[in-house]
Design a protein around this nucleic acid. Structure first.
Lengths: 191, 191
DNA sequence: GTCTATATTGGGATAGAC
DNA sequence: GTCTATCCCAATATAGAC
């Protein structure tokens, strides 16, 4: 066999990773299938052996990004929930994140989702619910904060990242991220 | 004169208003000049009598939206800063806003801005700074809250609106908006 | 200032060879 | 599974009439 199943899966993952990166930078309509495949060292024709079209790819890329995001990482056993949560917030509200290191799809694709089909919107919605569940679970052991409080923190940190990406002034970005880090920690119960 | 200067200005404003609406729904690359002009009852050719191109229009539409936004409204003299601020937060975090009534460009265009040129990004940045100044000014008389606190509130309410637009479940939207309204009021000093 | 017509470019998707 | 070649449609922008 010239092309094994393993090879196909690797190619598929390469396309997904590359697609998500490009979508976060240029948006759905700013990315062409040609861009995408060139970015993987492949050509346009090969794309349709993996995905039915660009919309289906977008949905898959969103799932892929959520699955591999920093918030989905498992907490090591030797670390407390509180310490781990603090670390996650630090990473989420970091300049590295703004600059595109393992970007959170909720923040990087936010307004782009409005133009997508029902399936993709549903995926985004469930990723959002998942993020709230993850944060809430970590707060349970040491804090009395409610699900509603977590919702407001989620909105704040997603907003902070989304806005920071549009700004040019690095001082403003740093202040914005630091302010939200403080306030988020406070709302969640002294993190 | 068959076409007066006044007529041209009215047409220009009609294009700007219509353009901003379409951009918030479909994003920059999702809107064509043809869509735009049909939405105003005009044809494509006439567009270039008003704007040098789609990018220039986007920038102008952003300025237009900021200038006519609810946050830019002047406070009536017979209302206290605190009451007015409370009203602004209520409106900003309302279902009507999510559904597109006088939308805030900061929330509705957030990730779309990343793909724009320097001029448009600079406009967005100054609108963001303007929003923070407005909120901060209203808090001065009755609260000890700092500029940094206002920044975190701005991120939260922009994030809340941007996320709410992507969600399908109306219960989640209501809870999200209400939670952020409460938290934002608390951070700003009991509003 | 606004219209119709058109030049030109580019992208999504498919066909068929290897 | 991936390649090249091609079909088809759409979009930006301009030209020239009124």
């Amino acid at each position: 066999m010239p092309y094994t199943k393993d090879h196909k899966n690797k190619t598929r993952d390469k396309i997904l990773k590359s697609a998500f990166e490009l979508f976060t930078i240029k948006g759905f309509n700013g990315v062409t299938v040609d861009d995408l495949m060139k970015n993987c060292g492949l050509t346009r024709g090969a794309f349709y052996a993996h995905f039915s079209g660009k919309s289906a790819l977008y949905n898959e890329a969103l799932k892929f990004a959520a699955y591999t995001s920093r918030l989905s990482k498992l907490k090591p056993n030797n670390i407390s929930d509180k310490t781990w949560l603090s670390k996650l917030l630090d990473e989420y509200l970091s300049v590295e994140h703004i600059n595109g290191v393992n970007p959170c799809p909720l923040a990087f694709l936010a307004t782009d989702i409005v133009t997508q089909n029902k399936e993709t919107k549903a995926t985004y919605e469930s990723v959002f619910q998942g993020m709230n569940k993850i944060l809430f679970n970590y707060t349970n052991n040491f804090s009395s904060c409610q699900k509603e409080d977590v919702l407001s923190v989620t909105a704040m940190i997603i907003g902070a990242v989304a806005i920071s990406r549009t700004l040019n002034d690095t001082a403003t970005i740093s202040t914005l991220l630091a302010s939200c880090r403080l306030e988020a920690g406070r709302i969640l119960g002294g993190v």
